[in-house]
Every structure is written in C-alpha cells, then in structure tokens.
Design a binder for these strands. Sequence first.
DNA 1: TGACAATGTTACCGATCGGTACGTACTCTG
DNA 2: CAGAGTACGTACCGATCGGTAACATTGTCA
Lengths: 200, 200
Amino acid sequence: MSTRRKSMPAPAAEAPRRAADRIRDTAFELFYREGIRAIGVEEIVNRAGVTKPSLYRAYESKDELVADYLRDYHQRFFQRFEAPAAEHPDDPKAQLLAYLDRLAVRASSEGYRGCGLTNAVIEYPDHAHPAHQVAVDSKQALRERLREMCRGMRARDPDELADSLLLLLEGCYVSGQTFGEGGPARVLGTAARRLIDAAL
Amino acid sequence: MSTRRKSMPAPAAEAPRRAADRIRDTAFELFYREGIRAIGVEEIVNRAGVTKPSLYRAYESKDELVADYLRDYHQRFFQRFEAPAAEHPDDPKAQLLAYLDRLAVRASSEGYRGCGLTNAVIEYPDHAHPAHQVAVDSKQALRERLREMCRGMRARDPDELADSLLLLLEGCYVSGQTFGEGGPARVLGTAARRLIDAAL
DNA sequence: TGACAATGTTACCGATCGGTACGTACTCTG
DNA sequence: CAGAGTACGTACCGATCGGTAACATTGTCA
C-alpha cells in the first residue's frame, strides 16, 4: 500500500520525507539491528524525528508495523536472492552458488545480524503472532523456490537436496551472528557444492 | 487460622522443593518455550508458586537468572550431545551421527523450539549482554568439540568439515521451529553423512 | 526453649511499555 | 479570503516492566 502524492512533483530530493516513510525506514533499521522486542515505539519515533501519533496513524499497532517490516524484509531478501539470475540465465546451480558465496562473505564479517525473518520466528514463537506468520510464510516460499532450483539442476532427489541446502543457509544466518569474523559461515559455498555434486 | 496445610514434611518425593529450585526450573521451562524477553519475573514466580523477593534472594537480577538458565542449558546440551559416546566408544562418526539422528526426529516434530542458546544469541544481539556471552561461549565450545571429532574421523580438512556440520546443526535448530513437522530438519542425518563421506 | 535461616506477604518504586484524546499548523480549493 | 482536509505535535493514559523495603511466618537444629 503506497501513499501517492498528487501533483507537486516532490520539492527536492529526499530529506524531509513523510513521517510514515521515516518511521518505516527507521523501524527497519532498528528492528533488524537491535531486535524487535528490544525496540519500543518510543525509540522508533524519536530516532525518526517524528511523534507517536504519526506512527499510529500509519499503523494500527506495533505488531502491524512489525509485520510490515517483515514483509519489507521478505521483498528485499528475494531481490537479493534472485539477483544472480540475470548473470546466470538458465543455470540454477550457478545462480544459487552466486548468492551463497556473497552471503558467506557478509555472514563472516563482524556485526552481521543474520536473517530478519529467521530472527523474527525466534523472537515470536507464538504461531498466532502476525510476525511469526509472515516470517514462516516467507521461509516456506524460500523452501519452494529452492526445490524448484534443485529440480532445475536435475538432482536425483530435488526435495532432499533443497532441504539440505536450506539447513546450510539457515545455519549460516545464525552462525554468522554467533561467531562473527572467521566463523563457520565461511565454508557455506564449499559445503553447498559438496552436497550439490553428491546429489546430481 | 489459615486454611492452608501446615507442616506435612514432603508428602511424597519432591514437589515442594526449595524456592530457588522451583524458580530455576520454572524459568528454564518458560524461557525455553516462550522466549526470554517474552517472560517477566512476575510470571515466573507466579507459575513457580513463590514470590518475587524469593527470586531476588537467589538471583541478583533477571539477567543473572537468564545467564544461569543458559549455563544450565549448556550443561544439559552437552550431556545429550555426548550421550551416544558410551554406545560408540572410539567412533566419533557414529557418536555424532547418533546425536544428529535423534535431533532430526525432535526437530521435525510439532512445537519444537530449537536450541535455547542459539535463540538467546538472537534475542540478545548485544555482545556485552551476559546472556549473549554465555551462549556464544557455549557455541564456541561446541565448535571446538566438533573439530575434535572430525580430527578423530581422520577428515582431510577437519576444521572445514566441523564448520560444515555446525551449519547443518544450527540450520536444523532454527528450521525445526520454523517448519515444524515435515520440515527440512528431517534430512539432517542424510546431509551430514554426505558431507562426512565426501570429507574422508 | 530459643536462635537462625528460609520463605511468604504486602505494598510499593521509578521507568518504560503500547496506545490515544485533542489541539494546532499547513495547504489546497472555492 | 474562507473553509475543509490533511499532517503533525503536546500531553497524557493505564498496564506492565524489573526491582525493593519492611515485616510476619515457618521449619530446623541446638
């Protein structure tokens, strides 16, 4: 859902954007870096330079803001995930490995905070919570996409390979933030290649 | 005067233990099942059937209680992890696979909540927080133990194999609670065998 | 019996939580 | 210019957070 402005083609470039946008961006940054439960609405609006009522005009509740953050994360994630497709058309193996190799670097650097969606599942274990649901839906889409790619690789058992790779992926997200630099995330590419080669 | 039963020196075996023990056990259960940040001290003492002062006589703060919970978890974890050693002496590969096979079952069942230590790292990303530190220390010990086992397997590159297996392990913990029954965790054993066989 | 340690009871603290009633300033339109 | 509508801020709400003070009660052991 987007707030479309009518005429007035944007005064300049960006700085004093709408309150809702500032909230959205600030919340994204804070939720991801510090964790969702650790951040209160007060801190969000302060850092965004707006006030609480502005937040509650744009979102029904904090939970809705969280869900929106996760939907946003989901979208950005798949953008990153599918980005290598352009460089390696019709080569799902190369596409996947390209993403994994980039991820391995990010996840092995200091201050890495893992996957916002995975983190949300852990912060909100209650299956009824909107944050949990959005995150799980996203992960299910990822699983399905991986299966599709493994079928494209002509793996003997595409579903099994996809799940194995998903384990490596998720392991990389969490190990990245546990160990930081020089952590196990560095072997992601190698391990994935081993599994793929053994499955074709 | 009061309607509550008086002395009754332990009617059966264990029920009315010390307040500190009841708090410890209740906190363990609640922190693990619901998440640490989601559980307040009030809820802990209510469910434990004690009162807040009792909690603060046994622990300096909630953070200390959390750290203690994690140390407890660490101990129970390694107990489970090393349990198969008795059945497979001098066979690190069989030991590890035995643990993984059991884990795969647990992690693929409904309501699985993953590893309390991994969850704590995500709930407390701040490296200075005691919970974060205890959890990371435990994970580093696990990494070292895995390396030791991989050396025992005579792997070509034991550190690389250990890290690969650690990724699978952590992936299993988090995917277990994301997908529940029929999730990717089911392939843990197969994937681990593939990686081990390829590394010897 | 008396002393002591452990626990419960009650009532509170300041801070922060998510959330809102209501007033104000700007801008677009007639 | 008048008026409407939009966008935002000030000030506040009750609930809950982690944590504490003061005192009553209990079981144990000497």
